[in-house]
Design a protein around this nucleic acid. Structure first.
Lengths: 343, 343
DNA sequence: GGCTAGAATGACAGCGCTATCATTAGATGA
DNA sequence: TCATCTAATGATAGCGCTGTCATTCTAGCC
């Protein structure tokens, strides 16, 4: 094991007291240049690295940004994580994350665990915390950012977008392109997914094209294979379906493959729209329409808001709406005979 | 902020000394049942949660498993992470991870940072550490597991497979299926990728079908779009190419889409084989051959080895080879006229 | 009854760092 | 020249917990 070098040893070597070394490290402008140079030299020679546990104990807070996400294997959340990492790259903060497995109870427990560490900030996915979790967060002494989604009642700050409105816009797009019998494919109907469904439903009803029986969902997590199965099931019941709004891109890709297997032309006989705009959507054949949900930026902005707050700068509006955007591609060019998409 | 409850307060409430509470929490069998009950009640009433920083400082070690991975946005590593999480779910250990961005220098630095915390164990991706990193790891006082890959010279323990052999097996599969002019598509040629290429090359040469000019690589990270571009470039130069071994599944999927765009029948005119067997491969149309690399299990086993070691149990062999397996699917059924794949 | 062994509990110190207040040295002005 | 102020540094205590003894108590034995 690398032998532990303590502050005291550095201090002895530099010929100053430990507290001066501590100061030199944390607020270099408060020690004389010459002293600081001696200390820096001693630090370098001994390979000193501060003990984060001792620091946390002495200061009563940890230089940690806690992050709570439902899953590590879902690209949506890892993109956010990546943005968080990027935003923290040049800072003294560490990221510490935990996985809720989409379970509010687990989330509640983990919030408690995190807050006892007195983190510098907390980033949490979504707006569907339990009442108890909400109370914990309300009393948190650090900045809290809810990401992925916006809502009316932030704990503290929020970065996201409206899943309802994004899904509604995607549905409107399908209608605008001439599809009249759209269906909905959904997996793991968590609260965000439910709100997307609500957006789909509202817009489809407004357009007079909603049919509850053209909704095909499953409780299992999304997957490409699952998208294929859902489409097959839906078309089995409703062969007249002329478009599907998919809960997410994996389902959309699966739907595309299944349509190929079934010999159904996309977009001529079936329009397909996904959600999240993973990279593959642009590259597919035909290219797949999706909804861009600036996930990386969500993470980066969440971190920026926390840092601004900690530094006493203005973190900007408490609710930051990163607006999802429809990326219209060939998979929704419209039923055979309709005009193609511009661009 | 949830008010901090200390051991001392719990002790006062239970009418015992702090140290007894500490013992009751950590080794319940060393305090009398009745005392323990009083303490448990006090803990519950006050909502006490131990301060990990104080514990780390007092014991000189942290109940943390450090994990170093190159990227969070690559599904390959998040699958491993997921396995790690699962293996640690019922334990007292936390996971703390850091991202090396595929940079050995960053990795070296992060190893140092982690080891100062005296973690309970360390899991690190790959076998390509710098000399300095290697020296740090050799002196580490905790179990170290290298994952993703096996090699001749473990720091401590290893769980993985031979990328060279897996790629060679995949290449053999292509040859067995009747492909005679195979190409190689690769992105971000990191050491593991290089070894996969070496395996491809060795086997293709052994089969007398290697042509260095049918190798198409790029430095940018893998993507589906990148796979499409690589295939287009390769076929531009070598239209006679009858199969591609792709560095990973994203490239393979992109190659499939590009083949569709170019009107090239898969597998009849072009065989496609990926690497990693992400979920979509099975669901694609045609289904895509890939190499299963038990990533989740790698994480789970790495954790199990560490836990066994910490508990004084037998962690099993120092080098655990999880054998990659070819999953033959329709995309490599063979050139037109050849027999189809069984099952 | 006196003694010992073992179980249960407690006192004390200290992990490495920093908050707080105290001290010193040098600069300023009448 | 001396009081006064500021900048730089130091002494002290303590963050919440646990390792290491020491102490108390009970049971068992001759």
């Amino acid at each position: 094991m690398a032998k532990r070098v303590t502050l005291a040893e550095v201090a002895a070597r530099a010929g100053v007291s430990p507290i001066t070394v501590s100061r030199a490290l944390r607020r270099p402008d408060t020690v004389q240049a010459e002293t600081r140079a001696r200390i820096d030299a001693a630090v370098a020679e001994l390979g000193y690295v501060p003990d984060p546990a001792a620091r946390a104990l002495a200061t009563g807070r940890a230089d940690v940004i806690g992050v709570l996400i439902p899953s590590v294997t879902n690209a949506v959340f890892t993109d956010v994580l990546s943005g968080i990492y990027d935003g923290l790259a040049d800072s003294r903060f560490d990221v510490q994350y935990a996985i809720t497995r989409y379970d509010p109870g687990t989330e509640e427990k983990l919030i408690g665990v995190f807050l006892r560490q007195r983190p510098a900030g907390l980033i949490i996915s979504g707006i569907d915390q339990t009442d108890a979790a909400r109370r914990l967060l309300d009393r948190a002494s650090c900045p809290v950012v809810q990401v992925m989604e916006t809502g009316p009642d932030p704990v503290d700050m929020m970065v996201g977008f409206s899943h309802h409105d994004a899904a509604a816009a995607a549905t409107r797009h399908l209608i605008d392109r001439g599809y009249r019998r759209p269906g909905f494919l959904g997996a793991r109907m968590d609260p965000r997914t439910q709100r997307r469904f609500a957006g789909f439903r509202a817009e489809a009803e407004a357009g007079g094209v909603f049919d509850l029986d053209r909704v095909e969902t499953t409780e299992v997590p999304s997957s490409v294979g699952g998208g294929a199965e859902l489409l097959r099931a839906l078309l089995g019941r409703h062969p007249e379906t002329d478009a599907v709004f998919c809960n997410n891109d994996d389902l959309a890709l699966g739907a595309l493959f299944e349509a190929m297997r079934m010999g159904i032309p996309v977009p001529g006989q079936l329009g397909i729209c996904g959600f999240n705009d993973l990279e593959m959507m642009r590259a597919a054949e035909p290219s797949l329409t999706s909804v861009r949900t600036n996930r990386f930026e969500m993470g980066a902005r969440a971190v920026e808001m926390i840092r601004a707050r900690l530094d006493g700068r203005d973190p900007g509006p408490a609710i930051l709406d990163l607006k999802a955007e429809i990326l219209a591609r060939r998979s929704t060019d419209g039923p055979t005979g309709n005009r193609p998409v511009e661009t």
